[in-house]
């Protein structure tokens, strides 16, 4: 939807129903866990060194995680006068390209989701795989597919997401903000 390729992604829609910022990475600052509070440690601290390095690379493109929230607050306060608001032509220009492969990937993924929900998880797998092959930089496909894995069935999608991120390009995971 709107060209979102991962989470968190945000879209701004003004009072008239006009998109004033297209889909883009929308992180909010994550509070540091208080020592001794029992709060979970960040995921990167619990993985092997190779994966930790990859996660570090992936998240390096997100930069200062207060930026998006600062921009949202500015828009709320200043509306159309906010410097973060984009003209309609610029919104369209910045939205994600949709070549035939990406359009077909969306159709394949919809089939996969339907089959999974209809109780045919194994029949959904080829469609999930095909969606990822066709549109490899849309990380919402493999992430959503993996979230649907039923441990009882034990199917896999033939790849590990972190391996795929390394193969396709870590900076595609969270495209840098243009703001």
């Amino acid at each position: 939807m709107f060209g979102m390729t991962n989470v968190p992604f945000g879209v701004w829609i003004d009072e008239s129903g006009t998109i004033v910022r297209p889909a883009e990475v929308g992180f909010a600052p994550r509070p540091e866990p208080v020592a001794g509070s029992g709060a979970p440690r960040p995921a990167a601290a619990n993985v092997d060194p190779r994966s930790a390095e990859l996660i570090k690379t992936i998240t390096s493109t997100t930069g200062d995680r207060t930026r998006y929230m600062t921009a949202v607050r500015d828009w709320v306060a200043n509306g159309g006068r906010s410097s973060y608001v984009l003209a309609p032509d610029e919104v369209v220009r910045r939205s994600r390209p949709q070549p035939p492969e990406a359009a077909l990937a969306a159709a394949e993924f919809e089939l996969g989701q339907h089959l999974h929900r209809a109780g045919h998880p194994l029949d959904a797998v080829p469609h999930f795989k095909r969606a990822h092959e066709l549109d490899p930089e849309n990380w919402s496909y493999p992430r959503q597919a993996l979230s649907l894995v039923d441990p009882e069935v034990g199917q896999n999608y033939g790849y590990d997401v972190l391996d795929e991120v390394a193969r396709i390009g870590p900076t595609t995971f969270y495209p840098p903000l243009e703001m």
Binding site: V7, G10, V11, W12, I13, D14, W75
Partner: peptide, 9 residues
């Protein structure tokens, strides 16, 4: 109203 449509997991 302004709408922030946020996809989150």
């Amino acid at each position: 109203r302004k709408v922030l449509l946020l996809a989150w997991a």
